[in-house]
Design a protein around this nucleic acid. Structure first.
Lengths: 267, 267
DNA sequence: TAAAGTTAGTTTATGCCGTAAGGAGTGGCA
DNA sequence: TGCCACTCCTTACGGCATAAACTAACTTTA
C-alpha cells in the first residue's frame, strides 16, 4: 500500500530532505539519543546488507538499540524514511565530469558511474520513481547530467527528453542485474546451475520449442547466448554487455541528432 | 522477502506456466470448485483495479467466495501466482507486425503496443524482471521482437543486445507514467496542483536554487518544462513525449549500426 | 456395500509488518 | 517549584503469507 503525504506533511518532508530544520538548541525534554542522520544511515546499512524487503522499522530500531516506535520521533513514516535514504544515497555520485574529451566520453563515464552506484545500492531501484522525491541530491544528479549533455549544443526541449531516456536506460539495465543476483543466490545455486536446471525443464515442458520459437532458436544456434568470459556469473555478464551495447546505441542516436542539428545550422 | 522456488517446485511451476498438468480426470475427492485459470484471472482483475499493493491472497479468495487458504490447493504460493498472472497478461500482446514498411515502422508499432500494454496493466511493471519467469508468453514476446529486428540484417550478437535495450527502455518509460498516476490521485490533487504546491515549498526550502542548479534553471527558463497540451495531466504528457523522443533516438542509433554494417558489407 | 484413501476447502495459529494510543521519565524555563 | 515539551517505551490493532490440523466429499478397492 503506497501512502502519500498530505499537504501539511509535505512541508515537513521537504524540510527533512533539505536539512532546514529549526535550531534545536535549548529545548526542553531529554536530549535526543538519535538523529535523523543516524537513522537514515542505519536504514541504508540494513537495505544494503539485507535488502529492501528486510527493511522494517523494527529492524532499523534494533540496530540502534531502540524499538521501532522510537524512530517515529524523528521520521514521520516509513515511506518518508525511504525518501530520505534515497536522497542521501545519491550524494555519493560524482558531481562533475571532465568535458575535455567531448560529451560522449563524459556521458559514458556518467552512465557507468550511475550503473555502479545502482549495483552498490540495489534497493535504490526499488524506490518508486515517479512522484519525484525532490530532494537536493536528486537535483544535483539531474544538474550533473544536464551539464554534460548541454555540450551537445542541442536545444533545451531535446535535452530534457534525453536526460529522461538516459536515466531510464541506466536504471532499467541495472535493475536486471540486481534482481538476477539474488535469485539464484537464495537457493545456493550458481547462475549456470540454475540456468541448466531450468532449460532441462523447458525441454520437458515444451518439446516443440524450436518450431514455436524459430527466431529464438536461430539466435541460440548462432551462439549469441554464449558468454565470452566464464569467470563472471552468466546473467550478470549478460546484463553488463547489454548495458554497454545499449549505451553505445543511445549515444549513436544522440550523435545523429547532433549531426542533423549541425547540418541545419550550416549556411 | 523474495522467496525462490527450490528444485522440486521448479518442475511444478513450469508445468503450471506451460499448462502441462496431468489429465485430472476421474480423481478421488470432491470436484474442484475453482481452477488455476479463474484464480489467475481474478488476481489480474484485482491487480488491474486495486493495484498490486492490494493484491493479497485474501482479496483474491474473497472475490471467489473462498478463504485465502483455498487458493493454496491450486497455486503453491503468492509469488507463483504473480508469475502466472504475468505470463497470462502477456498473452494479449500482438504477435506479429507488418514488415512491409520496414523494420523501423514495425519496431515503433511494437514499442507503442508494449507501452500501451504496460499502461493497461501497471502492476506488470512491478513483477520482478530478472530471474526470468520463463513462461510461454514471455518467449512469444521475445520471439516477436526478434523477428522484427532480424530485418535489420544485424548479427545475432548485436540483436540479442538490442532486444534487451528495447525492453528496458519501454518498461522504464512506462514505469514513470504508471507511478506518477497514482501519486497525486491518492490525495485528490491534480498534477498541476501537486506540482504548484511542491515548487512553492521548494523556494521556501532552497531559496538559492538558481545558483545551486544553474543548468536546470536555464532549462526551465528556455520553457522546456512547459507542456504543450494542457488537457492531459502534466506528468503523463511529459512521460509520453520522453518515450517518443527516446524511442526515436534509439532507432537512430540502430540505424547507425545498420549503416555501418551495410558500408562494411559493400565490395 | 463397506472400508480405505485422496482431495477441496475450512478453521486456527504463528510470526511478521506499519503505526495509533497512551504512559513514564527527562530536563530546560517560568 | 511546577510546568510542559520532549524522547522513548509498552501495548494493541488490523493487516499480511502461510503452516498445520481438521472436515467433508468423492473414487477406488475389498
Amino acid at each position: 500500500m503506497v501512502v502519500f503525504a498530505g499537504q501539511g506533511d509535505a512541508r515537513r518532508s521537504m524540510a527533512l530532505l533539505w536539512h532546514t530544520s529549526r535550531s534545536e538548541e535549548g529545548r526542553p525534554g531529554p536530549k535526543p539519543g538519535l538523529s535523523v542522520d543516524v537513522i537514515v544511515d542505519t536504514a541504508i546499512a540494513v537495505a544494503d546488507s539485507e535488502g529492501m524487503a528486510a527493511l522494517s522499522m523494527r529492524a532499523v530500531g534494533e540496530r540502534l538499540g531502540r524499538t521501532a516506535m522510537a524512530l517515529y520521533t524523528y521520521v514521520p513514516s516509513k515511506s518518508e524514511l525511504v525518501d530520505l535514504m534515497y536522497d542521501r544515497a545519491l550524494a555519493e555520485l560524482p558531481t562533475s565530469y571532465e568535458l575535455g574529451a567531448g560529451w560522449r566520453a563524459a556521458v559514458t563515464s556518467w552512465a557507468e558511474e550511475a550503473w555502479a552506484f545502482y549495483l552498490r545500492h540495489p534497493w535504490v531501484l526499488q524506490v518508486s520513481q515517479a512522484r519525484p522525491v525532490l530532494g537536493p541530491n536528486e537535483y544535483v544528479m539531474l544538474e550533473t547530467a544536464l551539464r554534460i549533455l548541454r555540450e551537445t549544443g542541442l536545444t533545451a526541449g531535446v535535452l530534457r527528453r534525453l536526460v529522461g531516456v538516459l536515466f531510464h536506460f541506466v536504471r532499467a539495465a541495472a535493475q536486471t542485474v540486481t534482481e538476477s543476483r539474488q535469485a539464484p543466490g537464495a537457493t545456493g545455486m550458481s547462475d549456470e546451475e540454475w540456468w541448466y536446471a531450468r532449460s532441462a525443464l523447458l525441454e520437458e515442458v515444451a518439446p516443440d520449442f524450436a518450431e514455436r520459437f524459430p527466431t529464438l532458436t536461430w539466435l541460440d544456434s548462432e551462439g549469441a547466448y554464449q558468454s565470452e568470459d566464464e569467470s563472471v556469473p552468466y546473467l550478470e555478464q549478460e546484463a553488463k554487455e547489454t548495458f554497454a551495447a545499449g549505451l553505445a546505441v543511445l549515444l549513436d542516436g544522440i550523435e545523429a541528432a547532433v549531426n542533423r542539428a549541425g547540418v541545419r545550422a550550416l549556411p
